[in-house]
Design a protein around this nucleic acid. Structure first.
Length: 677
DNA sequence: GGCGAATCGTCAACC
DNA sequence: ACGATTCGCC
């Protein structure tokens, strides 16, 4: 037990670790050692004799789950750490559904639709459903449907309103397609546990100890899921569920996704008689950073007051830098990182660049590349939204579930094989009429009979191709990655990809990207026999972010959105784009949710351990043209005594500061020393 | 039906 | 600035 080093914990942290029985609520401010407490608590449970496979830890992002797993590995034997289930809510639900979704009327080989697939489907349903004078924005419809699902509402029986009709049809169509969206993963998992006590009892037995991180961000479905898992269906009355939740109302930043802060504020009502522990000592940041964050967040009404304090004295002042435009902002950040790694002996891994929207990473990436600084972009649309990757996944999805219309339609004429828009249109129409999938229509004699010979031939060739590879895939001991590669090859997809690229170099790049994904699958397949279906699911949930080679050192500067950065920490942080309309975002000002934007900035600031630099621009390129910008209104809320405001133009014209000059001089001397006289 | 060119609309965040 | 969509021509 001494190897756990409980003596490294403060009294409150230790209390939290030792509170292993019954409900536990840990109110943990930013940087109060929350992850340390969770991981140590898991380790403590295991050392106390709990079977590691009976422990479930749920987080919100894959990044946080991986981080936790990594830290646990350092505390206990890796084999035991591996047995603990650490996953995001969505990945957990997928696991539940893979086993028992048939009970809910879906087939085991169901597909998962991402944002793009979902919007596309809703768009189609709207055009089909809406009368001439009616219009409904697909994006609006999608978010309303999503909100409804997360509140546990089902589609209305009557189809009075257009929205209601679209909702109902969307849900019905997903089921026909044997597909689920991200919300369904939660919704259906909850339904499964509610309606099938024997399934619930099985998972109750499996997970005796639950921990939920970032509990302030759970929505109603997620709370339901936690309750269903934690409260054993057959538990005698008076049993206290072993559920530990950790959270901080100041870091609630997922209101737009239906998060209910009340889940944490009213925890006692869901899990009576909990042990409640407050963690208030911050170990992460300097006082300059902490005071800046505290002063800012005090401006929020309706928050649980807390006294975050740090034993670390002072530290460098927080920098706020004004840049002429976004290009120079990015260049400044990149050159600072280059200089500081050189002068101060810092590692690239010590730095993170945080921003409000994914689009902001581009300019920073560009300058980091130019300066040959390694970096990695976390999340965002970088890799998986590339056309070739989505096409590949669509091809794979069709092999697994040919009734998945969205995937089928994506690739039915990619590359062009003579099944054009009008033909596809007719097939879709027939599929709606017959209430079956498009693939079934393509095989239907009545449908095929009405076609020209040429059209029929094109369809027959396609159906035969898909059939043949589906059979190959399902052969026992099939090399599934090989089958997929051969399939893509025979369709002529790669040749088509190359052809449609502007430059040959681009073609080579995209092709190797495609082949790399197939190679991941190949490796993945060797580790688990679950095959293609699981791999597609993991890809949809972005589970593979942590590749083997990423774990080694040298992964470089982290580029990450403020949302994705929650739960992480970095020695040196650059927080860019502190402009009115961007942070706080324009949309949030209109929606009246500026408080949440303030919490978002609070989250960003509290990621920094040693130094923090925030930047804003006078102008920025948006939608391809230059727009003037003004400083974020949050900046004036910072405490003057801990923050230094500077102008990038002044910094650049100033002489090199003393320590930098001294450093460079010493490096020169060291270099000269190496040269023999 | 297929293909290049012009035009359009997007950039809020995550799984 | 870029990808998606529409348009006009073969």
């Amino acid at each position: 037990m001494s190897s756990l080093r409980l003596f490294e914990l403060n009294p409150e942290q230790e209390k939290a670790v030792r509170a292993t029985d019954g409900p536990l609520l840990i109110l943990a401010g930013a940087g109060t050692g929350k992850t340390k407490v969770i991981t140590t608590r898991v380790a403590f449970l295991i050392c106390s004799g709990v079977d590691p496979s009976q422990i479930l830890a749920v987080t919100f992002t894959n990044k946080a789950a991986n981080e936790m797993r990594e830290r646990l590995r350092r505390l206990i034997e890796p084999e035991k750490a591996k047995e603990v289930t650490m996953s995001t809510f969505h990945a957990l639900c997928m696991r539940l559904l893979r086993q028992d979704i048939e009970k809910l009327g879906y087939k085991r080989n169901f597909s998962i639709y991402d944002e793009g697939d979902t919007t596309g489907l809703i768009k189609k349903i709207i055009t089909r459903t809406a009368a001439k004078d009616e219009k409904l924005d697909p994006g609006v419809a999608k978010s309303l449907i999503s909100k409804a699902k997360n509140n546990g509402w089902s589609a209305p029986e009557d189809e009075q309103s257009l929205l209601g009709a679209v909702f109902a049809r969307y849900q019905a169509e997903l089921k026909t397609l044997n597909a689920v969206d991200f919300d369904d993963l939660l919704l259906l998992a909850v339904k499964l546990l509610q309606e099938f006590p024997e399934v619930r009892a099985r998972w109750n037995r499996r997970f005796q100890y639950l921990m939920v991180d970032e509990f302030q961000d759970t929505n109603r479905l997620q709370l339901d899921l936690v309750s269903l898992l934690a409260k054993a269906v057959d538990a005698p009355p008076g049993t206290r569920p072993n559920v530990a939740v950790v959270g901080d109302d100041d870091q609630s930043i997922y209101g737009w996704r239906g998060a209910e802060v009340s889940n944490i504020l009213e925890f006692e009502e869901h899990f009576p008689g909990p042990t409640v522990i407050k963690l208030e000592q911050n170990y992460r940041s300097t006082n300059a950073i902490l005071n800046t964050a505290n002063t800012l967040i005090k401006n929020n009404p309706r928050r649980r007051p807390k006294q975050l304090w740090s034993a670390v004295e002072g530290g460098d002042k927080v920098n706020v830098v004004m840049a002429p435009d976004d290009r120079q902002e990015a260049e400044y950040v990149a050159s600072q990182i280059a200089q500081r790694t050189f002068n101060e002996g810092l590692k690239h891994e010590d730095f993170a660049v945080l921003y409000r929207m994914n689009a902001q990473s581009r300019s920073v990436e560009q300058h980091l590349r130019e300066m040959k600084i390694p970096y990695r972009v976390v999340g965002g649309k970088s890799f998986f939204d590339a056309r070739e990757i989505k096409d590949l996944l669509a091809y794979a999805s069709c092999l697994v579930n040919a009734d998945d219309d969205v995937s089928l339609l994506r690739i039915i004429n990619t590359p062009a094989r003579g099944i054009g828009d009008t033909l596809v249109e007719r097939a879709v129409e027939a599929s709606i009429k017959a209430r079956c999938s498009v693939f079934k229509v393509l095989q239907d004699e009545a449908f095929r009979g009405e076609l020209t010979t040429r059209a029929r031939n094109a369809i027959d060739t396609f159906v035969e191709l898909l059939d043949r590879y589906e059979t190959k895939l399902n052969e026992p001991l099939a090399d599934q990655a090989g089958v997929l590669r051969a399939f893509i090859d025979e369709t002529g997809y790669i040749a088509d990809l190359r052809r449609t690229c502007k430059t040959p170099e681009e073609g080579v790049k995209r092709e190797s990207k495609l082949l790399e994904v197939i190679r991941w699958f190949d490796e993945n397949q060797k580790k688990s026999p679950d095959g293609l279906q699981k791999f597609i699911g993991d890809m949809m949930l972005r589970q593979e972010q942590e590749k083997e080679d990423d774990k080694e050192e040298g992964r470089g500067v982290t580029l990450i959105t403020l949302h994705a950065a929650k739960g992480l920490e970095f020695p040196h942080v650059y927080l860019i784009g502190l402009e009115e309309g961007l942070l706080p975002h324009e949309q949030s000002k209109m929606a009246g949710t500026v408080d949440e934007e303030r919490r978002l900035l609070y989250v960003g600031i509290t990621r920094a351990m040693r130094t923090l630099t925030m930047t804003w621009c006078n102008q920025r390129i948006r939608y391809g043209s230059t727009m003037p910008c003004t400083r974020s209104s949050f900046v004036k809320e910072f405490p003057a005594e801990w923050v230094e405001h500077r102008n990038l133009v002044d910094i650049q014209s100033a002489p090199v500061d003393h320590s930098t000059a001294k450093n460079r001089f010493e490096q020169m001397l060291a270099f000269l020393d190496q040269i023999p006289d």
